[in-house]
Amino acid sequence: MGARISNVQREARELGRLRTGWSVPHKDPGKRPVPVKSETWVLTSHARHYLDEAAEVWGGTVEPWQPQGSGPEQYRVVTERRSIDALLPPGDPLSQYNEMWNAGGCLRRCDGETEQLTRKSCLCARQFGPDWHLQPKGVVCSVTSRLRVVLPDMPDMGTWRAETHSFYAASEWGGTVDMVLSGTGGRGLIPVTLRIEQRKRVANGQTKNFPVVAVELRGVTPRQALTGPLPTAVALDPSAAPRLALEAARTDWVAEAACALTIDDLQDTWRRAFRAGELTDALAALLKARCEEVEAESVRPARRTAEPQPVPDEDGAIDAEVIEEIDDPGWPDDPDATG
């Protein structure tokens, strides 16, 4: 029988990254690279055959790519798609921090209240106030959101990491993922679409255009996603399970209550309907009434079965058992009883 180490976190291997741009060297070697935004998804990985498959599915050309720093060479494909299909894996796939990095690694990692490396209060908010995120990059931390997803059409078993430094995406990703987790409890897969959409913000007389990665449900309704964990077959191919089939797969709680024979059966129905989010007031009242019926039936005296009447034979005689008469000793508590 298999076993797991209880204090070791289990996490699927990271196969690559999903990016919304890249960077090019600055004309001044002493300055930071210049970021370039992409209107389509960019995939990077250490394994070329992953990206060969991505290019087949989403277009683009695989090319060698050198990430910032001194890491080993990888591969990159700039796809032709603004949206790609993905799956949210079980557990909580989202990690969010305010971070500051340099060539030596991570300098700050803050949850919005406490800087995790020094255990001090948020340095950016203390210095610049609640609108600290409007300050130039490098002066304050960058809002960093990392979302682990499964790309069902790619080779191998593992996750891909989508990362964004958008302040607005951080809010939307957190809201979407938390809403999904409230319904699934972190169990099962959820089909989603990752889409790059262009946004515009007008403030202080200035107009700013910027991309935001939206996480959208794919092929299922919010009702279906929030009812509980989806069957894996539905998550992998939502189009193969039309809405009517999903509705038909629901348990008929009323019929189950009518067939229940014991209080334990009815209590089990109550618990399962509650976990499925389908314990309505009407169903609760019906289950309580059925419990009273079952309880009443359990204390009702059993009916006596009528004894068959003797049937005379062809001579008109009736078989009978001869019982020898004995003196009645009386009730044991009777003081006049004999013996």
Rank of each mutant, 00 (worst) to 15 (best):
I190T: 15
Y168W: 06
A203H: 11
V177I: 14
R201A: 11
T144Q: 11
F167N: 04
G186P: 10
G188M: 10
K200F: 04
R195P: 00
R146L: 04
S166D: 02
E197G: 07
A169V: 02
V202W: 04
C141S: 13
R187A: 15
G174T: 06
E163S: 11
I190N: 03
T184V: 12
L194P: 00
G175M: 09
E172C: 02
R148H: 12
G175I: 01
L147W: 04
T144Y: 01
M157H: 13
G185S: 03
R187K: 11
G158K: 01
T176V: 05
N204R: 14
N204A: 15
R148F: 01
D156E: 13
L151W: 03
T164H: 07
N204G: 06
S182L: 13
T184S: 15
E172A: 10
V202L: 10
R146A: 11
F167K: 11
T193L: 06
G158D: 05
S171W: 09
L181Q: 09
R195D: 10
D178R: 13
T184H: 11
V180Q: 00
M157Y: 07
T159G: 02
M157D: 09
V143G: 04
S166E: 02
E197K: 13
G186D: 11
M157W: 11
V143N: 03
G186Q: 08
R161N: 13
G185E: 09
V180S: 05
I190Q: 04
R187L: 12
T193C: 10
S166N: 06
T144D: 12
G183M: 05
G183L: 09
D178Q: 13
G185L: 08
N204E: 15
R187W: 05
V140M: 04
V180Y: 05
S182V: 05
V150I: 15
G158L: 03
R148C: 06
P155L: 07
A170V: 01
V177A: 00
R146E: 13
W160A: 03
T159L: 04
G158H: 02
A203W: 11
L151T: 06
T176M: 14
Q198H: 03
R201P: 00
T164W: 04
L147M: 12
R146G: 00
S145T: 14
V180L: 15
T159Q: 08
V192P: 04
D153E: 12
L181E: 06
M179F: 00
W160D: 01
D156M: 03
Y168N: 07
V140T: 15
T193K: 14
V150N: 00
K200H: 08
P152I: 03
F167A: 05
R201V: 07
V192F: 12
M154D: 08
S171E: 06
P191K: 02
L147Q: 02
D153W: 06
A162Y: 03
G185W: 06
E197W: 03
V149I: 07
M157F: 10
G183S: 05
S145L: 02
A203G: 04
V180G: 00
A162E: 05
S182R: 14
